[in-house]
Amino acid sequence: MAVKVIIPTPLRQYTDKRDSIETTGATVAEALAGLTTQYSALRRHLYNEEGKLRSFVNIYLNDEDIRYLQKDKTPLNDNDVISIVPSIAGGAAFGYRAIEFPA
């Protein structure tokens, strides 16, 4: 299946500044594999050391989060649009309250 993958702003430096990439695959996993074969620098930001999608990488297939479909085994149709949607998260170190001393 020929599909389009929408690339979020922080990752466009790895796709020659392009905001969408055409690729092929029978499933979401195959399409993403195609994408990261074409642009290998994307890989470390999308997958962890075990080769699994990072927890803060959300994948949408035509506006539907694939975690509510068949995850990365979700089958594709021609002209589907896959979006890589970053979760933006962070925080402070924890445990600091335990080492707080009165001034």
Partner: peptide
């Protein structure tokens, strides 16, 4: 930044 910040960070931004 915390370790958690780094683990969840995106490049360039």
């Amino acid at each position: 930044p915390s370790e958690y910040d780094r683990e969840h960070a995106w490049p360039w931004v």
